[in-house]
Design a protein around this nucleic acid. Structure first.
Lengths: 202, 202
DNA sequence: AAAGAATATGACACGATGTCAATAAGTTAA
DNA sequence: TTAACTTATTGACATCGTGTCATATTCTTT
């Protein structure tokens, strides 16, 4: 019999799914730290040991749950950038900053869990580092492009500028995730973009 | 008998001190997460229960150990700022960014522990938030001052600008703490200051 | 030196985790 | 159809770290 119709395999998938859902709910309610595996297991209505058949532990569960969110970040990082003027650059950059921060708003709850987990789990911290690197590389290229086309101040180290710019964005992202921001995402994006573009471009 | 000559009290202070030192060593070796209270107790050569007489737990120990470092941050945040020109402003800002990042280098090891703890302990996270707020308020005032004196672009929200600028600094700080930076502190400070000042000032 | 106060101690109870030998459920092949 | 085999589930158990508390020790006072 083929794998798809295999009753055993199907049940296994269902079990896994039940646990993932229970884990998500538990993480959202309790946060990463306080979320207990035993609690997830109870909620999923499965045997204790079963959880460890499907996942190595809490960390492993969260990684799977985060994969979807992380994909979205990678997509944002891949926007193309070939401005012909300072104004066009400003426009593109503003849109990208907006999209980035909007993500934080849209996925706030999972991102809150994620933030905690970054501080605790090496693996998850590495996943975030990879996302950060992707963004910085992308921005780095963009800055270099602008410099080569006479749009931006060439005396600046594009790598350092790129990091600085991303860092501002990232910190605002966490601020939004934590609900600590007063202003709207649009206002934030516009302000930081303005300072950045006026500071870098000619 | 007065408190100073009190043998009992003196011994108590010694015990506390021994534990603090052992805790520091353990934190530095193991990181916040992995550091075990039992390990610190062994190293300090005191009875298990004694640790709990002096401190509530791991969190409490680290808070005491961090107080010194945190003081230094508050001092940096208190630098005065009354520039008469854009160039003077740039100079002051550059110096402050430098001092801030140098702190990260000087206290790198304890800051590494601190970073982990921020992700885990609410109390410690709040301590850092207070430091951050202090800086942002300070910078906010500085931006407002520059705007009022016709030195900076008045159309920008000074609060948002201040946060953005601090965030760049903070993220570079953590990067330095984690030893992930390629460039020197001076180079970093100069580059980010340049973009910031050219972007904000007239 | 006896009573009293401050400090130190480690055995213990507790809560959470991950493992594993046993069991159940489903599939295959004769 | 059923016996052998494979895959999935289970919960009791061992382990580990923490914090508490009744008791012991050390010092001070009267």
């Amino acid at each position: 019999m083929d794998k798809v119709g295999d009753k055993r395999h199907l049940r296994s998938i269902m079990t896994r799914q039940k646990l993932l859902e229970a884990a998500k709910e538990t993480f959202l309610e309790e946060g990463y730290q306080a979320a207990l595996i035993s609690q997830m297991i109870k909620r999923a209505n499965i045997g204790y040991g079963t959880a460890y058949v499907h996942f190595k532990g809490k960390e492993d569960l969260l990684i799977v749950l985060m994969e979807n969110v992380m994909e979205q970040f990678y997509e944002i990082a891949e926007t193309s950038f070939f401005p012909k003027s300072k104004d066009e650059a400003k426009h593109i950059i503003n849109r990208q900053a907006n999209a980035f921060l909007k993500m934080a708003e849209a996925e706030r709850n999972m991102m809150q869990v994620f933030e905690q987990a970054i501080g605790i789990s090496t693996i998850i911290s590495d996943k975030w580092k990879a996302i950060r690197m992707k963004f910085i590389q992308r921005i780095s290229k963009d800055v270099a492009y602008a410099q080569q086309n006479g749009l931006a101040r060439a005396e600046l180290n594009h790598e350092l500028v790129a990091r600085g710019w991303f860092f501002t964005n990232e910190m605002y992202l966490w601020e939004i995730v934590r609900n600590e921001h007063q202003s709207t995402v649009e206002e934030i994006a516009q302000t930081i973009t303005s300072v950045y573009v006026e500071g870098l471009y000619l």
